[in-house]
Design a protein around this nucleic acid. Sequence first.
DNA 1: TTGTACGCGTTATCAT
DNA 2: ATGATAACGCGTACAA
Lengths: 336, 336
Amino acid sequence: VARTIDELAQLSGVSRATVSRVINGGSVSEKTKRRVQAVMGETNYRPNLAARSLASGRSNVVGVVMHIDPHLVFQDPYFGQLMQGMSTALADRSAGMMLWLGNRSKEETLGTILSMGLLDGVVVTANTLDDPLVDGLLASTLPTVLVGHRKADLGASYVDVDNVHAADAMTTHLISIGRRRIGYITGTPRNVAAADRLAGYRRAMERAGLNSHDLVVVGDFNAPSGAAGAGRLIDLGVDAIFAANDSTALGALETIAGRGLRIPEDIALAGFDDLEFAVQLDPPLTTVRQGVRQQGAEAVSNLFQLIEDPTGSPRRVLLPTELVIRQSTVGGGSRR
Amino acid sequence: VARTIDELAQLSGVSRATVSRVINGGSVSEKTKRRVQAVMGETNYRPNLAARSLASGRSNVVGVVMHIDPHLVFQDPYFGQLMQGMSTALADRSAGMMLWLGNRSKEETLGTILSMGLLDGVVVTANTLDDPLVDGLLASTLPTVLVGHRKADLGASYVDVDNVHAADAMTTHLISIGRRRIGYITGTPRNVAAADRLAGYRRAMERAGLNSHDLVVVGDFNAPSGAAGAGRLIDLGVDAIFAANDSTALGALETIAGRGLRIPEDIALAGFDDLEFAVQLDPPLTTVRQGVRQQGAEAVSNLFQLIEDPTGSPRRVLLPTELVIRQSTVGGGSRR
DNA sequence: TTGTACGCGTTATCAT
DNA sequence: ATGATAACGCGTACAA
């Protein structure tokens, strides 16, 4: 029944300073240390975080900002997995986590975060080109790590995958299996990953001397846009479709099958993400796997390094992706 | 460039107390109030939460505890939707949210939460019969609201749906369309909702004078267990299957269709949750809809009431459910 | 209406 | 190794 460090000190017969030392690891004689710890166990005393944070300037609490429409955020498995990765990494460091989703405007969210005062740092998803929230965080004194990054973020610490490279590799794969008219369905405009993947597709096409000019249709990372986009591309006579993500590919698959075309014989199909359902599609979907949980864990690790040494140079981490080749581009064709 | 309230006071030419009053709403002359606010705008001063919390005892931050295996938590749309509801309700009150998932043991999680010191209260999901985390939270002085509840939680504030009633209603619906041998696939053993739904099924069966004794098979809320359970029930010659949730029903549907049986002509099928995919199944699934987002919002609202008046009697809220009748139990049958 | 002074629970500095 | 004592930034009686 000791609520404050003073009570605990009195019960242990030592000064408050000594108790603080046994908690935080100062030099204390083995004997008194044991006595204090004994009393601590009996009274199940717990240091107050607010006070500790005020005095020491550190709280062991970090902020996580995923400024996405709350009705959509957990629709896309990406964000759930990202949270898992961060949550686990934070728990491993017995650190706490404050969470902000996209309920208020970015400006308001920025304001609340900056006024917390007790956060040791922040991990924020950076997926749109213009983002005052990310800009504000980076401009503040709060240690900040980005998940994803814009061109302008060269001075910041971030964790990302090389979307350009991955999309290039996938496109090259499609070319290598003999496809020439490869259509592309983009992700949401102004989204960084979407822009990078498109760039990778274009780069591979140009390198192979293929025309990509009029084979690009705009999507929004969701299945309906994939269904619509695939229809337009089929009319353009493509022999392969590369969708900006698996959800888009799912929509495309339905349109292709609906028109009685065979995958991959008539049209090869590829996605991006390797979501759970990708392997269960008919035919199983060729796609790009990125370790989202690992990205979350890496972001946390990165942030803690930044907190330890705020002056060091920015830590830019590019995690590897993996080409997962399944029957939607090569092999036995449809099971139907 | 004012970091503390003292600096801001100096710049405004008033005392720190006056500044505090214009921030927290004490009696201040309109004139000085305006002046202080002007300076506040220029210097974009932000009060420090740790200090504020230490001095006032309130932080405007609440804890959210969903002690589920982090690899599973966002697999089930339930938890994502619950978070959305809470996140939105908290943002509406400009309150912050600390999140704990099931990374550590329940005892460890309990310890960390209790030692935060700055939480105004906690919302915790209560879905297993024995839960030291929930017990510990309820035994503490921290205002706590449960999402879901055990029989033992009669003294606690909680938000839940009446699973017994809803399952009873669904079973009664199946009886009303002429089914007599109605099989049931349960949810995870020791899960509260699973137990309540099973009880509701049994109650309705008994009231109708039907045998439910040997028509119950154990599942775990996931599709594979539904597929297996449906197989066993079909062998028992059922004319209807009620699954503990939609995922389980999904598995059951595959088994039924795989055996060449028609839904609902040969076997009527019902689920629970009304997840997004329920309406897109073939045939569309009859199920029970519960407003999960609303439950989250209600839990937050409940918690804030509890914080305002900790002495008041516990607030037990049962949210309504809705029977959603689709073609898997009545009407045109399969589209296949 | 405004200012003074104390307390919130901890860490950290400085003697001892 | 231990103990005073001063911060940390803010809220709030109390006094003026």
